[in-house]
């Protein structure tokens, strides 16, 4: 990966409500055409970082108080989300956030409006999304609120992709989904990356799958980047394996034990 970066985040600090620190000194780079993963447990600042980049942080009374964000060579720190979407940077929110009372096709159409497409371009864009997600075509007239979680994730990703973005910020695409569906979604991410050159920055708690599908990864801890490196290297590192992949030297045992422990606790 020798390409120039499409996204360059330098040392950003984010504050919510003027007092609560959300990120303190996050720097990361997404190369043009790359897939970069942002790993870390709950509350380590992954979502905050993504929202700071997409400008959505402002809608939640958050503010980037320090640092720089460059997208495609331009300073975008003060840009409105709509301007960023027009420029080709779009975020898929954690928890999917489909429009529940709109049907699948309406969800996709809304995703395209920022680019003011002609009627035929819009139709073509929808067809293109259906080619990637054939299941959405079958359910085109269903209200998004009644879809399964996996289908909703497809709608959310399709809705972001219909405007042909250059960079997609994916927040927890695996959340609450069955492992098969997760794999299916990551396969589509990889296809979009290879066939259309879309770059991805994805925040994931499921480090195992994120490391498998990304080129480079950053590990976040309490609001800052704790370590980073090529995904293959990180996946081989002992500390990463035990902390994030639930494996120790003997294999996968510890995670399963932890899970048993938790479910036993929950039942009692």
């Amino acid at each position: 990966m020798t390409n120039s970066p499409i996204l360059n985040v330098e040392d950003i600090h984010v504050i919510y409500d003027k007092v609560i620190l959300g990120a303190r000194g996050v720097s990361l780079v997404v190369p043009e055409g790359g897939i970069v993963a942002l790993l870390g447990a709950n509350g380590t600042g992954k979502t905050t970082t993504l929202k700071a980049i997409s400008g959505l942080i402002g809608a939640e009374r958050g503010e980037v108080v320090d640092g720089r964000i460059h997208f495609a060579g331009r300073d975008v720190l003060q840009s409105a989300p709509s301007a960023l979407v027009e420029g080709g940077l779009v975020q898929v929110l954690e928890g999917r956030h489909c429009f529940p009372h709109l049907d699948v096709e309406e969800n996709l159409r809304v995703g395209a409006f920022a680019h003011a497409p002609s009627r035929s371009d819009l139709q073509e864009g929808i067809e293109r999304i259906y080619r990637y997600f054939p299941r959405l075509r079958e359910r085109r007239r269903s209200l998004a609120g009644y879809l399964s979680g996996g289908e909703q994730q497809m709608v959310a990703i399709g809705r972001a992709l219909i405007g042909r973005p250059r960079l997609v910020l994916l927040d927890e695409p695996s959340m609450g989904l069955a492992p098969q569906i997760v794999t299916e979604i990551f396969e589509i991410v990889r296809r979009l990356n290879r066939e259309e050159g879309v770059s991805f920055l994805l925040a994931e708690q499921n480090a195992a799958i994120a490391l498998r599908y990304s080129d480079h990864a950053y590990v976040m801890e309490s609001g800052r980047v704790a370590s980073d490196g090529p995904s293959a290297d990180l996946a081989a590192r002992d500390d990463i394996r035990s902390f994030y992949l639930g494996m120790n030297m003997e294999g996968r045992r510890s995670f399963r034990e932890a899970k048993h422990y938790h479910s036993r606790r929950a039942r009692e």
Binding site: H101, E106, V110
Partner: peptide
Amino acid sequence: RIGLSLRAVADDPLAALSVGI
């Protein structure tokens, strides 16, 4: 289009913002 955007905003303002409305 404006009507559809409007329904989208009514459903989920943050999601509407995220797709550039």
